[in-house]
Design a protein around this nucleic acid. Sequence first.
RNA 1: GGCCCGGUGGCAGAGUGGUCAUGCAGGGGACUGCAAAUCCCCGUACAUCGGUUCGAUUCCGGUCCGGGCCUCCA
Length: 463
Amino acid sequence: MPIHLYNTLTRRKEPFQPLDPKRVRLYVCGPTVYDFAHIGNARPVVVFDTLFRLLRQAYGADPVTYVRNITDVDDKIIAAAAESGEAIRALTERTAAAYRDDMAALNALPPTHEPRATEHISQMIAMTERLIAGGFAYAAEGHALFHVPAMADYGQLSKRSLDDMIAGARVEVAPYKKHPADFVLWKPSTPDQPGWDSPWGRGRPGWHIECSAMAEGLLGETFDIHGGGQDLIFPHHENEIAQSRCAHGGAPLARIWMHNGFVQVEGEKMSKSLGNFFTVRQLLEEGHRGEAIRLALLSAHYRQPLDISREGLKEAKTELDRFYTALDKAADLPLDGEAAPSGEVMAALEDDLNTPLALSHLHELVTRLNKAAGDGEKAHLKSALLASGGLLGILQQAPEAWLRGATAEAGPTADQIEERIAARMAARKARNFAEADRIRDELAGDGVILEDSPTGTTWRRAG
RNA sequence: GGCCCGGUGGCAGAGUGGUCAUGCAGGGGACUGCAAAUCCCCGUACAUCGGUUCGAUUCCGGUCCGGGCCUCCA
């Protein structure tokens, strides 16, 4: 079955067919680096990382190019730097590094390219010049502005007409704008703001132009998939489309536009402006493991709103315990030579990235693994489970590490635990169950859970 | 006001025109010295009102409720 994806442009699920059969090109809007990423920022990363993994599975790793930009010039960055006194470059470097670490903790693969806006200023200027030359933009008072009425079919992605926008306009219109909907391609900088020389004077790019310029440079005029959060549909993506198409003789920017739903807290959008957010870092420091956060983010379909909560993260952790416990018991079994993801998991993901359905099949796989009698069948199911989990970016660490690795809270070392288990075993042999239970309770107090089996006692951290 | 999404069992969350989601929590059982883990069984879920239909949670329309975008925002 071919991959089907929901296209915001047509509001329908469409079969996916790469423009160039030999390569797949994906662009996702990345972070503005002025602060730590919150889980709302993490959702598109995890969602599109899962798409990246699926595309690599379907087309091979090499043909898939995934671009995710870093916005390192922006008024919020200028404001944050001014407030803290930190140099802008230091702030953006530090924040970008933290972002990479946090996303890696969520098992997100690095994108193929991670362009920084400040490294592509000349392309932005060039594209702006082309737009002006083509009559789609104009210069005014140190600015360059895109003239929205110059584009006949503006508004296709967000399904709004120019009239609607004027009617609903809540923005005050700058006097140099020819039309209220016109937006900035380039704006002047004061001497203390970052700026670059341009035909319109020293200044910096507007928000939308960077994605158009970087996508053009790395992926070409038209590519396959463009992704981002729902809040980017308007104005950001609409304006990207306007700039790119008008600079490219009308060629489409991306064939499929995908947008993830919001992360919510108590039914309300989580966002920096509302202040109701948790950063990824904060949750990691609280002891929630990245893989559990990832699973929680994949537990709802990407286009649905997702309420994130500590309870939800705990539930995700419990589910991972079950997966890893089963894998731990099968640790000695060999993997199938050509371990492929289960067909059901593939099919679920191929249907517009239905991760909750895919996860339900993973649960069925683990139940079958737990029930399987023969080693051959177990090995086969283990292989399918691992390969399927790999598509979702979970279950890839050693069960040993998940169950018995060090956790945020300091507990007894593995050696100390083994020692206590030996002591308990001796007590059990002597049928001194009171002592055995005392040791077990003591370890439980240290966050260590024991499991007796005919072949011995194993342990794991409750974490 | 314009344009979008949603409302499924205690919770999370898929899906479907006519016997099954799945997970977590809970109850019962098997196993265990007792546990834990594991397995088995259990709960008359689809906001509401109409319509279409032999039959609707699923399709259509109205109503109510919730969320989002229209301004920086994943």
